[in-house]
Design a protein around this nucleic acid. Structure first.
Lengths: 171, 171
DNA sequence: AGAAAGTGTGAGTGGTTTATTACTCACATG
DNA sequence: CATGTGAGTAATAAACCACTCACACTTTCT
């Protein structure tokens, strides 16, 4: 439960910009209790990141099981759509962005991000049966979403924003 | 001069994770002097971000002028190669990643990132003459680079890392 | 009933961080 | 030589942050 609300807290300002007090307030508990649940701020953030990866993976799995099989393109499109729907609240995606940023200098976060993408890539590859290039393209588009969300490109009425977000579903 | 060294300072831990003392130390000046040069930490970071965008744009321009025109694919490939070379030190790219993260909640940073990408996208579109889809693909691959660099995927000997970095030049 | 274990907090500690202030020093310029 | 100025800093204020600890309340087991 704390993890779910911590997602919202960390989504705005990431690992270094978010205080444990803010996380506690979002969860409706005292700041001291955060340290009973997690040994350190870092381990809390890592848990949040892992939780997000699990949620993303779950969404992709469900997309495959409900919409069933088909061509690699169809499966990938279904996954992309499920992803777009999942991250319509934006926080999931922002955590991923902040996790990437923190991964640069925090080894524990880096390891979590690596494992998260390892599982995600292998799942997408296996479930879609797409080529290397198709899988790569799938994730490249996902990364593009990070840019669109973080800059709020959907509320920018400009050619550059429209070019970058072309064909990317937004709920 | 301060801007150039500040890039290195902010590259590791981004906006919130880097102290003005660290920036000062990297530049070989006192922390107090940072505040004579810039009115706030935020304006310093914005200046760093803008500086990076100018550098990236310069690299793309040079790639076009030296390698001349050709098909849109050829020009885009040349730009991609120039970009890969530019960011071989990684700091430029990490600033971009951290700028994106800070853009989520810092309006001044968000504005700088928006303008930076606006200029970049328009330049790539104009210089390459590529289609919307091609320009989008170009930036999507750039975003994928952020992931590869931040997770250190090049030093991971695993299928997922190889799939994501396939065909992406690394100097 | 009473011990043990779990759930939770208020009050603090020590260290950091941004930002300001008051100051020095080298060097122009008239 | 007096006056002014750009470059730079040490010291510190004020706020804040991660993390700790002693203590209270509740549940569960015997």
């Amino acid at each position: 439960m704390v993890l779910a609300t911590a997602i919202g807290a960390f989504a705005a300002r990431g690992y270094w910009g978010t205080t444990t007090t803010e996380v506690a307030k979002a969860a409706g508990i005292s700041q001291a209790y955060v340290y009973r649940l997690f040994p350190s701020k870092e381990s809390l953030f890592v848990a949040v990141v892992e939780h997000c990866f699990v949620k993303v993976r779950g969404a992709l799995e469900q997309a495959v099981t409900t919409r069933g099989g088909g061509s690699a393109e169809a499966v990938l499109r279904g996954m992309g759509d499920a992803y777009a729907q999942l991250i319509s609240d934006n926080d999931l995606m922002l955590i991923q962005l902040h996790a990437q940023a923190a991964a640069v200098s925090e080894p524990a976060v880096r390891e979590a991000v690596r494992q998260g993408y390892a599982r995600l890539v292998e799942y997408v590859r296996g479930a879609s049966g797409g080529s290397e290039a198709q899988v790569q393209e799938f994730f490249a588009r996902g990364m593009l979403c990070h840019l669109l969300v973080s800059t709020g490109a959907d509320e920018v009425q400009a050619p550059w924003a429209r070019t970058l977000s072309a064909g990317i579903t937004h709920y």
